[in-house]
Amino acid sequence: MIQHSVFIIDDDPAMRDSLLTLFRGAGMRARAFPGGREFLDGLPDDKSACVVTDIRMPQVDGVELIHRLHALRGAHWPIIVMTGHADVPLAVQLMKAGVVDFIEKPFDPNRILESVRGCMLSLATLAPALEAREAAMQRLATLTPRERQVFDALIDGRSNKEIALDLNISPRTVEIFRAKVMQKMEADSLSALVRMGLRVGDA
């Protein structure tokens, strides 16, 4: 099973150390960063992770960090916001934008542990889909340009005859390409191939 990381971003050294001790003591893999800029400059390459960030930080603040992380990682990097009381309206706004939780300082350690564990549980359910998508992407990269055309046409629901007309080849040639596509994509049925197409999206 994949062990997902927890990334802590806070400009308060005492808070960073406290959270590192808390998460590592709970058996989690945790790393801390002093600010949004440092985190983005050395952005980890984990495919999925949980981020715990403060909002009020110098240079790159939590709001900018959250928007950039959503663009870069999306749902595979759920974000928990730590906030002072004055930041609650902003935190609610950020939750509507996709942040999974906000926790007011000072907080009960069990409260933030519970929230991070919830993120880990959600990532555990996402992991198989992410791995399946990556496998489909790797197989897709092995297709020749013509095989990719046939793949795209099959995903669009076109018949062999329609594909033959579109590509100006014979239906028999389409059948040959279709068999190659099914073999390379390791699909045992058209429905399996369509599911792979849905996973890779517009790749």
Rank of each mutant, 00 (worst) to 15 (best):
T144K: 06
L113S: 12
P109S: 12
L123F: 12
S159V: 10
R139P: 01
I80S: 02
R133I: 04
A127Y: 10
A153L: 09
L113K: 15
Q149S: 13
K96E: 06
P145Q: 15
F177L: 08
A141H: 08
P128M: 12
A91P: 08
I163S: 00
E175V: 10
L113R: 14
V81M: 10
R178T: 15
I103H: 12
S170Q: 09
E147I: 07
G84K: 06
L126C: 11
I155Y: 02
T173H: 03
A91V: 08
V100F: 15
V99G: 05
I163P: 00
D108C: 15
P106K: 13
C119M: 05
L167M: 11
V174P: 00
L130N: 05
V88W: 10
K184F: 04
D156W: 02
R158C: 07
R158K: 12
L167F: 07
K184T: 08
Q183A: 11
I155M: 02
A153T: 11
K184V: 04
P171G: 05
E175M: 08
F107R: 10
L140R: 14
P89T: 03
T142I: 11
I155L: 03
L165P: 02
R172A: 12
F177I: 02
I169R: 01
V92Q: 02
R178G: 07
I80D: 03
L130T: 05
P171K: 04
T142G: 06
A91M: 06
P89W: 01
E162A: 09
V99P: 01
A164Y: 08
H85R: 11
D166Q: 03
A97V: 08
Q138W: 09
Q93W: 04
A135W: 01
L140K: 13
S115N: 01
P171V: 05
T83N: 06
V181Q: 01
T142V: 12
N160V: 13
A86P: 00
T83S: 05
E114Y: 06
M137S: 07
R178E: 14
D156E: 13
Q183W: 06
A136N: 08
G98N: 00
K180N: 13
R139H: 14
Q183L: 10
F107E: 11
G84H: 08
E104W: 04
P106A: 13
I163H: 02
